[in-house]
Amino acid sequence: MSLDAEQVAKIAWLARIEIDSDAIPEYARNLSSILDFVEQMDAVDTSGIEPMAHPQDVPQRLRDDVVTESNQRETFLKIAPATENGLFLVPRVIE
């Protein structure tokens, strides 16, 4: 599987990661070699094999529907890049 520069740019956009256009050809090369490598999987017939999402085959644990978190607004705002009036501040979204 070989990815071209345009495909890499599209994936980078999907992942919201800016990559310098100069660096894209090398990413394309590396990503293509990784995809070639994982394609060894294609040689195996896996029809009927139950996918394994998690090492322990147990049902998801449930808990009571009660509040367990305390209000830590100040603590969390203190480490944010930008805040205003007790809220996280981001660039304007709606003009």
Binding site: I11, A15, E18, L35, P91
Partner: peptide, 26 residues
């Protein structure tokens, strides 16, 4: 906002992390 996401992540992550995120996203 989009510019903030893309550049913050582009600057914040190194090459190997970016490679793996891209492989995963693909």
């Amino acid at each position: 906002l989009e510019d903030m996401y893309c550049r913050s992540r582009g600057e914040g992550f190194g090459d190997e992390v970016k490679r793996r995120i891209l492989v995963g996203a693909y």
